[in-house]
C-alpha cells in the first residue's frame, strides 16, 4: 500500500515537474506546477510530516501558486501566453540537466544513509520522531512539537533528558521571518504600485 501510494505521488510529482519544463504554455505550466507541488504534499504526509504537508498545500499550492497565476493573468496577453523556447535550447538544457541529475543522484544514492543514521544515532541519540514517549504518532503527530519548537522549547528532544543547554529552538527565525516578510512585502508593494504624484522627482 505504502509503495503504491509512494509510486503514485512520486510519479505525479516528478511527472508534473517534467511537464512544467516541457510545456510551452504558461497557464498549463501553472497547472502542472500545482500537480507537482500537491503530490509533494502527499509525499510529506507519507513521511509523517503532516504539518509540513498541510503548510505546503496551504501556502505553496494555495498561496504562492495563486500568486504566480495572478502574475500570469496580469502579463499573459495573447502573444505572451506561449513564448516558445527553441528546440536547440531545450536539447542543450536537457543535456546539461541529465548530467546534473546524474551527478546528484549518483552522489546521493551512493551513500549508505541508513548505516550513517544508525552510526550517528548510536552516538548522538535516537531520532526524536521514532522515540516512544511524548511524541507518539497517535498524539497529533508533529504539530504540537513544531508549535513548541517555534516558540523555542524542544519538548520532543529535551523532555526527560539530562542536558545542560536546551536544544535548538526556533523562536528567533519564527520572529525574524515576520520582519523579513514585512520588509519584503513593502518592497513588493513599492514596485507594484504606481507613483502617486505626477511631479517628476529626482529620477537621477
Amino acid at each position: 500500500m505504502e509503495l503504491l501510494l509512494f509510486t503514485v505521488f512520486a510519479a505525479a510529482a516528478c511527472g508534473g515537474a517534467i511537464a512544467v519544463v516541457l510545456s510551452q504554455n504558461v497557464v498549463r505550466m501553472a497547472f502542472y506546477l500545482v500537480i507537482s507541488l500537491g503530490s509533494t504534499a502527499g509525499l510529506f504526509f507519507m513521511l509523517n510530516a503532516d504539518f509540513v504537508g498541510a503548510t505546503q498545500l496551504l501556502i505553496y499550492v494555495g498561496g504562492t501558486v495563486v500568486l504566480l497565476i495572478f502574475g500570469v493573468m496580469l502579463t499573459a496577453s495573447g502573444p505572451f501566453l506561449t513564448i516558445k523556447s527553441s528546440p536547440g535550447d531545450m536539447v542543450q538544457a536537457i543535456l546539461v540537466g541529465a548530467l546534473f541529475l546524474g551527478m546528484v543522484v549518483v552522489t546521493v544514492l551512493q551513500v549508505d544513509w541508513d548505516g550513517n543514521a544508525a552510526k550517528l544515532e548510536s552516538r548522538y541519540g535516537v531520532s526524536s520522531l521514532e522515540r516512544p514517549g511524548y511524541n507518539q504518532r497517535g498524539e497529533g503527530h508533529t504539530t504540537r512539537s513544531i508549535g513548541a519548537a517555534l516558540l523555542g522549547a524542544r519538548f520532543d528532544k529535551d523532555l526527560g533528558k539530562n542536558r545542560e543547554q536546551p536544544s535548538t529552538g526556533y523562536l528567533l527565525p519564527f520572529e525574524i521571518v515576520s520582519v523579513h516578510l514585512l520588509v519584503v512585502l513593502i518592497g513588493a508593494a513599492y514596485l507594484a504600485r504606481a507613483k502617486r504624484r505626477v511631479n517628476v522627482p529626482s529620477e537621477f
Binding site: S85, S86, P87, G88, D89, Q92, V96, L99, F100, M103
Partner: peptide, 22 residues
C-alpha cells in the same frame, strides 16, 4: 536558434550556474 542562443543572456547566466556547479 543561433540568434536565440546569442540573445538569451539571462537564461545563459542560469545555465552557467548549472554548468559552473558541474
Amino acid at each position: 536558434s543561433l540568434q536565440v542562443v546569442q540573445t538569451g543572456k539571462l537564461r545563459q547566466y542560469i545555465m552557467f550556474i548549472a554548468l559552473g556547479v558541474l
